[in-house]
Design a protein around this nucleic acid. Structure first.
Length: 725
DNA sequence: TAATCAGCTTTTTTT
DNA sequence: AAGCTGATTA
């Protein structure tokens, strides 16, 4: 068979990876080096030259989007449909494994996936049942504790007893939560992975069967794998070790949620000898952008080592703009944006990137003023919206009455007179009698223990859900959804709600019907589930796009994390200030600082033609106005790659701006020298800092100084020995 | 049960 | 600043 179409479009390194002999292969794929191309061509190569069936290939990604894209691209190359082939996310594939063998996994056939919101509620319930003080033990933190351990493969019983009573409390909650999940047949995201690993570890026959089935494994974004994911990969890839892992240690930006870059070096050790291929030729950015990005990332010590290069042109220099404040920064970005669009470029060829989402506001306001359409990424996705989750809960409860999370969610939504008191009684009964909330309610309604009002409220609820359940039988999925949103009272409830939000909510509910209509139920892919069950799982595993509507040509606004994997002709990397980027909370540890630097590297390498780096001398954040220092990442870029864009006449320059902004009387005399607002000062005890505020005059004058080490302090000028620098 | 208020925190996010 | 939480009030 002629496979030249698979190899010809590739460079040497790519070809080396695609045609690598069977065995463990690690592809170090730099930004923009064509790693998706390598993955897709590799699979096509396996199929076309080695006669491997697509059904024997397992391809794992992190996001549904990446999985869809990969499938589409391989189908394009091969020219036939890959229906039935296992290309999916870690979670999606583990879910499929568990559905196929619930008994081996010790799960009920009807197990339900908890998304993080559901998990939050369940953890909260565990806290309350154990009478743990929620003020002292924030649910979020406990949830974090549990997930961290599970991502590391540890369950509550693995955690040793300690002398530390605080830790013991956490473990107790963890254990209770696990019991709760097991009893109720609930599986959170981490559990999908851990349970699948344990199932395979404990069932040789099963594992063997999958070894037979999957002769080739491919992993994308390998640097983002956590401990359990790696364990799972090892398990499935042994003993044949026909595994290709593609990743970039320099783009590891999810350490904070359990990703282990070390897996890349472990891989060489655990699977060795490993064929390593470096993809260093970049097809995305100009030479200057690459050199700048390389210069920044070189400041990291723990690297596998890689140097991106391009055969393309140097391109423009990188523009650095030091803004007076965040509004000036925004104005600058918009000015440049208008220029760019004025030259005939599409708006969606430009992206504004920032470290934290709060920064988007200024840009949004200014873009709105300027009449430039924009899209902000992030925020709630479709299936995470409250109204959608409400509707799904009605569906679930009508479908299987014993789903406690669904019950809790909607028992009083819309309000029907079931208050906290009543609910507590229900929970109590459920706990004491080991019943589901639904069963407990049935019992309470039949007994005589509740006040009349509460009892009839519950009675109505039971009747409503039962009636809904009866109406669902024999309907198509989308009709079931339609019935639910109408007869649950949700539509009326949200219609009555005031504000613009109400309207969108009703629209979203209507859209849910469409989503159900679009959902294609595949008895093979969704083995072990019926259409409704599969749809509900789908909703948990794939949160969906930000909004249902189509997006016209819009300027793209997003956090740096969201930008990974994307590319734009023009990129504005904003807020390059110490304490913001790198973020304040990362400054303590060098490991965290290196992750921030990688984030910067990711941001810079998104740019194809033009890169702007901006920072603001004064930034209003959390309601405070602070003087800032330029990010260290800026100074890590060689000067010859940079053009300092100095203020266009309309905008004041650095120090002039500080002086202008400050009321002249805000500056204050200290002896014969003048202390300038925003100027650097030295204190004998606290060290160096920046003068931030001045209050009062003469002997009673007080100043606020932001010290590098000690943070903000108020000092009485007469007593503090401040020295201007 | 719902509305209101004071106090508190503040990255990044997929599944 | 703003959004969220817990507590208090109507």
């Amino acid at each position: 068979m002629d496979v030249s179409h698979l190899l010809d479009p590739l460079n040497e390194a790519q070809r080396d990876a695609v045609a690598a002999p069977p065995g463990p292969t690690l592809v170090l794929a730099g930004a923009g080096s064509g790693k998706t191309r390598v993955l897709t061509h590799r699979i096509a190569w396996l199929v076309e030259t080695l006669d491997v069936s697509p059904l024997s290939v397992l391809a794992v990604t992190f996001t549904n989007k990446a999985a869809r894209e990969m499938r589409g691209r391989i189908e394009n190359i091969l020219g036939f449909s890959l229906r039935g082939m296992w290309i999916g996310t870690f979670h999606g594939i583990c879910h499929r494994l568990l559905r196929a063998h619930p008994q081996a996994a010790n799960l009920p056939e009807t197990f339900v996936i908890l998304d993080s919101d559901d998990q939050f509620r369940l953890v909260r319930r565990a806290l309350r049942e154990l009478n743990v003080d929620e003020g002292y033990w924030p649910v979020r933190q406990v949830q974090w504790f549990i997930n961290n351990h599970k991502d590391e493969g540890r369950r509550a019983h693995h955690l040793p007893d300690t002398e530390d009573s605080q830790h013991d409390t956490l473990v107790r909650i963890f254990a209770h939560y696990e019991t709760q999940c097991q009893q109720l047949g609930l599986v959170d995201f981490s559990e999908l992975l851990l349970r699948a690993v344990e199932m395979l570890e404990n069932n040789d026959d099963l594992l063997c069967a999958y070894h037979q089935r999957f002769s080739h494994i491919l992993v994308d974004e390998f640097q983002d794998t956590n401990t359990v994911q790696y364990r799972w990969l090892r398990l499935l890839a042994e003993p044949a070790k026909q595994i290709v892992a593609v990743g970039d240690d320099d783009q590891s930006i999810y350490g904070w949620r359990g990703a282990r870059v070390e897996n890349m070096s472990h891989f060489e050790h655990d699977f060795g000898p490993v064929k390593v291929v470096r993809l260093e030729q970049n097809y995305r950015s100009t030479g200057n952008i690459l050199r700048a990005a390389n210069a920044v990332i070189e400041h990291n010590t723990s690297r596998l080592g890689k140097n991106l290069w391009t055969a393309g042109s140097e391109g423009e220099k990188i523009s650095v703009y030091a803004a007076f404040n965040e509004i000036d920064e925004g104005r600058f970005v918009i000015e440049q944006l208008q220029d760019w669009v004025g030259q005939g470029h599409r708006r969606d060829s430009a992206a504004v990137l920032y470290r934290s989402n709060a920064q988007s506001r200024v840009f949004e306001e200014l873009l709105l003023d300027a009449g430039i359409p924009y899209r902000v990424y992030g925020g709630l996705r479709f299936f995470e919206r409250a109204e959608i989750k409400d509707a799904l809960a009605y569906l679930r409860l009508a479908y299987s009455h014993d789903s406690d999370p669904a019950f809790e969610r909607i028992v009083n939504t819309p309000t029907r007179g079931v208050g906290a008191r009543t609910l507590e009684a229900v929970r109590m009964t459920a706990r004491v009698e080991s019943l589901s909330l639904w069963q407990a309610t049935v019992q309470l309604v039949q007994s005589d223990t509740l006040p009349k009002r509460a009892r009839s409220a519950l009675q109505n609820f039971l009747e409503l859900i039962t009636a809904l359940g009866n109406q669902l039988t024999d309907l198509a999925l989308s009709e079931q959804v339609s019935v639910i949103i109408r007869h649950s009272g949700l539509i009326d409830h949200y219609r009555k709600e005031r504000g613009e939000r109400a309207e969108t909510r009703v629209e979203n509910l209507e859209e849910l019907v469409n989503a159900a209509r679009r959902f294609s139920f595949d008895p093979i892919e969704h083995e072990g589930q019926d259409a409704l069950g599969a749809f509900l799982s789908h909703a948990a595993l794939e949160a969906g796009e930000g909004q249902a509507e189509e997006w016209e040509d819009c300027v793209q606004l997003m956090s740096l994390h969201m930008a990974k994997g994307l590319e734009f002709p023009v990129v504005f990397l904003t807020g390059l200030e110490e304490n913001l980027f790198p973020h304040q909370r990362s400054l303590g540890e060098s490991g965290q600082l290196e992750e921030e630097r990688r984030l910067c590297y990711v941001g810079m390498t998104r740019a194809m033609q033009r890169l702007y780096l901006t920072w603001a001398e004064v930034r209003r954040l959390h309601g405070r106005e602070d003087y800032t220092t330029a990010s260290r990442f800026l100074s890590e870029i060689p000067e010859d790659l940079i053009t300092e864009v100095r203020a266009v006449t309309a905008y004041p320059t650095l120090s002039a701006s500080a002086a202008m902004a400050a009321n002249p009387s805000d500056n204050i005399m200290l002896g014969t020298t003048e202390l300038r607002l925003g100027g650097a000062v030295r204190h004998t005890k606290f060290g160096d800092g920046t003068l931030v505020k001045v209050e009062g005059q003469g002997a009673s004058a007080r100043v606020q100084v932001n010290f590098e080490k000690e943070g903000n302090k108020w000092l009485v000028l007469a007593y503090a020995s401040l020295q201007p620098l």
